[in-house]
Design a protein around this nucleic acid. Structure first.
Lengths: 96, 96
DNA sequence: TATGACTTGTCAAATTTAGGACAATATAGG
DNA sequence: CCTATATTGTCCTAAATTTGACAAGTCATA
């Protein structure tokens, strides 16, 4: 489940139109459409606004949003998995 | 073990100076120094050159290099671990 | 103190990217 | 066929990033 899909799911389940949410975010509908389809990425600020507007868990949306960006960054890399695991290990050790 | 540390390790174990490798990469020594200390990131092309110059495993160096960049990207994020795990799952499923 | 190796700080050019505007097109329901 | 909704495609610009050059600094050691 990618970020945009989740936004669409939340939006449709509440009977809202792209036009309405786009207005709240002060962007046009084409832009909102692109965000839902993952063609453009939302700003952090917009993610937070969306969490409020859609009464969704901010933490979860932000994780999804961040994951999307990481994915876009590594998706064409042959060693993406190796690298990701390395990073997880590094983070484990800085947390300790 | 971060990318720059690994480069330094390889370089020193072979008795090479920053100056020498920097010349091969056609950058100045301050720049090379920064790469080793992780203050600047190498270009992919430079990583490949370094693998050759230092007779190191290219795959391994590239993984380390990519991991470094991901780490820099997520290090200040509260949900970095969650996001990373999500990405790993996504990648697993696109591979299948 | 002189030298060589490395580090630090700052600057600027060049490039990239983000993020949006807008026009045109599709698609589905009434 | 009309209308509302959503999508697609193209273009633009401000902002950020990248990448390197250079000057000046530290540090060890001969």
């Amino acid at each position: 489940m990618h970020f945009g899909e989740r936004i669409r799911e939340l939006r449709e389940s509440q009977g809202l139109l792209q036009r309405q949410l786009a207005a709240d975010l002060e962007i046009d509908t084409p832009m909102f459409s692109k965000i839902e389809r993952g063609e453009r990425k939302a700003k952090r600020e917009q993610v937070e606004q969306l969490a409020k507007l859609l009464q969704a868990d901010k933490t979860q949306l932000l994780s999804l949003w961040l994951a999307n960006q990481i994915f876009d960054f590594v998706k064409d890399e042959a060693f993406a998995s190796d690298a990701l695991h390395l990073v997880i290990d590094w983070i484990k050790n800085t947390e300790k």
